[in-house]
Deep mutational scan, measured.
Amino acid sequence: MIVFVRFNSSHGFPVEVDSDTSIFQLKEVVAKRQGVPADQLRVIFAGKELRNDWTVQNCDLDQQSIVHIVQRPWRKGQEMNATGGDDPRNAAGGCEREPQSLTRVDLSSSVLPGDSVGLAVILHTDSRKDSPPAGSPAGRSIYNSFYVYCKGPCQRVQPGKLRVQCSTCRQATLTLTQGPSCWDDVLIPNRMSGECQSPHCPGTSAEFFFKCGAHPTSDKETSVALHLIATNSRNITCITCTDVRSPVLVFQCNSRHVICLDCFHLYCVTRLNDRQFVHDPQLGYSLPCVAGCPNSLIKELHHFRILGEEQYNRYQQYGAEECVLQMGGVLCPRPGCGAGLLPEPDQRKVTCEGGNGLGCGFAFCRECKEAYHEGECSAVFEASGTTTQAYRVDERAAEQARWEAASKETIKKTTKPCPRCHVPVEKNGGCMHMKCPQPQCRLEWCWNCGCEWNRVCMGDHWFDV
Rank of each mutant, 00 (worst) to 15 (best):
P37H: 09
K435P: 07
D106G: 12
P199T: 10
M458W: 03
C201R: 00
C431Q: 06
F251M: 04
G429E: 13
W453A: 02
Q347F: 07
A206Y: 02
D184F: 04
V29R: 09
D219G: 07
P247Y: 04
P137D: 14
G336R: 07
K299N: 10
P113D: 14
C59Y: 04
Y372W: 07
Q71C: 06
L283W: 08
P189R: 07
P14H: 04
V278A: 09
I236H: 05
C446D: 00
C154S: 01
F45C: 11
A339V: 14
E395H: 12
A38M: 06
I66A: 05
P132Q: 12
L187S: 07
W74M: 12
D115M: 05
L287W: 00
D115Q: 13
S181Q: 13
K412W: 10
C360F: 02
A339G: 09
E79W: 10
E395G: 08
M432N: 06
Q440T: 12
S9A: 04
F24I: 10
G194A: 08
T125D: 14
Y315D: 00
P137Y: 10
G85M: 12
D346G: 09
S233F: 08
C166V: 00
Y267Q: 03
P37D: 13
L228G: 03
T222N: 11
V250M: 09
C238G: 01
A172V: 06
F362A: 06
G77L: 14
E309C: 09
Y372P: 11
D20V: 04
E98M: 09
S205R: 10
N235A: 09
K435A: 14
V121W: 14
E300G: 09
Q25K: 07
G308K: 03
L331Y: 03
L123H: 15
L272P: 01
L107K: 14
Y312H: 12
E399H: 11
R140Y: 11
S131K: 10
S198G: 08
L272E: 01
T387D: 11
S110I: 06
M434Y: 05
L119Q: 15
A206I: 03
P333C: 03
E79A: 09
H257D: 00
Q71K: 07
G213R: 06
P189K: 09
E367W: 06
A390Q: 14
G385F: 08
G357I: 13
N454H: 14
E426H: 12
T410C: 10
R156G: 14
M327W: 06
C59M: 05
G354K: 08
R97S: 12
G355S: 14
Q282I: 12
K408P: 10
A134S: 11
C154L: 01
H433D: 04
C263W: 00
C268G: 10
D394Q: 06
S19M: 10
E98Y: 08
V67C: 04
L112K: 13
V324K: 06
P99G: 14
N235Q: 10
N232Q: 01
S198T: 13
H11D: 05
A363S: 14
G93I: 14
V244T: 07
Y315L: 10
P73A: 08
T388M: 14
P88A: 09
H303A: 03
S127K: 12
V3A: 02
F251R: 01
E300D: 13
